[in-house]
Design a protein around this nucleic acid. Structure first.
Length: 415
RNA sequence: GGAGGGGUGCCCGAGCGGCUAAAGGGGACGGACUGUAAAUCCGUUGGCGCACGCCUACGUUGGUUCGAAUCCAACCCCCUCCA
């Protein structure tokens, strides 16, 4: 990175660690200072919720809006119909029109928490709008002519595949063109001059920027974010239960808080900068904490990150629930809970079955195994008998805390 | 189109007629130690009211055998070389 950027957006983005590459940092910096700019990031719509893996992009768009610009969320409704073949072993199941619509709605709900979509503010668009009606011959003639196969072959995404003798379908080869075309459409329709995305999108992004430049004679820019891995090298956002989703129906605010509370020590500073909006001075102070004090930083990270997604109240509640559960050893009645039907309790509900019902074990076998290994506790008392049952009397006085391991707790309630 | 090679559990990867629910590693989970961290050590890791039992599982479908992930046939998919 050459001269330090002076626009609010680039300066803060750089300071917080969002930037990996920029096509023309100085020119972009100047444009951002001259007035509001529109920028977009593309998202798949293969699921009805985004997950923590998308959060970096979301936070970047949020920062973009906060610094006075217009973020555009581009949903790949059109490209999802084709199915992105990259990086997948098996062909992905094609989604129906209705599924795509449902997914878009879910994704929209996620974004509503992060961006202001009011009049003149952020936009959410679907590339199906222009891709669905695309005609092959005119597309080839008008757009395809501007793409040099020679150059496409030198792009990392293509070159690496070819070098490793991995197959590359024509469809996939074309993906680049479709992506570039999105940029062109967004420029024409909404004056978008900047595309952002993960570092793996660099090739696609510069193709798009070039296309806009050629056909419209306009300056267009690209910016990529670094690939975020955890200190232990894994792609972030995966836990035992799977992806850490951003929609509360999939991951509760409490579990979301716990996810951030449990990051590696080595990740806390970086994550505070990227996934919260605390002033950098505060981020640096927290990141400098050592030893057991790091826990303070993690709690701040968890609460701030949760507040951004689920609101301050839900975040505080999750923090308080955790404090009472972990630090006081109490049974906080705000923990996630399962309710057992009366007839199940009347007959004596096997602990194993309750574990499965509570989502703490995937099968009865696993539940029994957990008990056998001494990993299960009822109100903090270890369960040693694999055939133990929960009775109505046990739950009559109030919810019972069922725990697996040190960290997973669920309240069991009577219906 | 022709000739070879290959498809194994969450992933990688052994196995190549019975001793195989399938070595080993990774990951994940539980335990110990801690700070709801990392590292380390121990254990677990298909399902089923599971102690002996039963069911499902090694690309798909059939077949040979007392017995198949292992042999045969056809089919599907992938890779390599040739045209």
């Amino acid at each position: 990175m050459s001269a330090a950027p002076t626009s609010d957006f680039l300066r803060e983005a750089q300071e917080r660690g969002f930037i990996h590459q920029i096509t023309d940092a100085a020119a972009l910096d100047a444009r951002l200072k001259a007035g509001p700019v529109a920028a977009y990031i593309g998202f798949d719509c293969t699921a009805d919720s985004l997950h923590v893996g998308h959060l970096l992009s979301i936070m970047l768009l949020r920062l973009f809006q906060r610094t006075g610009h217009r973020p555009v969320v581009l949903i790949g409704g059109g490209t999802t119909k084709v199915g992105d073949p990259s990086g997948k072993d098996e062909a992905r199941r094609l989604l129906s029109e209705a599924e795509i619509e449902a997914n878009k709605a879910g994704i929209r709900r996620t974004f509503d928490a992060f961006l202001d979509f009011g009049p003149g503010k952020a936009l959410m668009l679907d590339n199906a709008e222009w891709l669905d009606s695309l005609l092959y011959i005119p597309f080839l003639r008008d757009i395809g002519r501007h793409f040099s196969v020679n150059r496409m072959l030198t792009m990392d995404s293509v070159r690496l595949r070819l070098e490793r003798d991995q197959p590359l379908s024509f469809l996939e080869f074309n993906y680049m063109l479709l992506q570039a075309y999105d940029f062109l459409e967004l420029y024409r329709r909404h004056g978008v001059i900047l595309q952002m995305g993960g570092s793996d999108q660099w090739g696609n992004i510069i193709m798009g920027a070039d296309l806009v430049r050629r056909l419209e004679g306009a300056e267009a820019f690209g910016l990529t974010t670094p690939l975020i891995t955890t200190a232990s090298g894994a792609k972030m956002g995966k836990t035992a239960a799977g992806a850490v989703w951003l929609n509360p129906e999939r991951v509760s605010p409490y579990d979301y808080w716990q996810f951030w509370r449990n990051v590696d020590d080595a990740d806390v500073g970086r994550f505070l900068a990227l996934f919260t909006e605390l002033p950098m001075a505060e981020v640096r102070r927290l990141a400098a904490l050592r030893g057991a004090e790091v826990n303070e930083a993690k709690k701040v990270l968890a609460t701030e990150a949760t507040a951004l997604r689920h609101g301050r109240a839900a975040a505080e509640l999750a923090a308080e629930t955790a404090r009472r559960t972990f630090e006081q050893g109490e049974t906080a009645e705000t923990l996630p809970s399962v309710t057992l039907p009366a007839e199940m309790l009347a007959a004596g509900a096997p602990v194993a079955a309750v574990l499965v019902r509570a989502g703490l074990a995937k099968s009865n076998s696993e539940a029994r195994r957990l008990v056998a290994q001494g990993g299960v506790r009822l109100n903090d008392a270890p369960v040693t008998d694999p055939t133990a049952t929960l009775t109505a009397e046990m739950v009559a006085a109030g919810p019972v805390k069922l725990s697996v391991g040190r960290k997973r707790h669920v309240l069991v309630r009577a219906a």
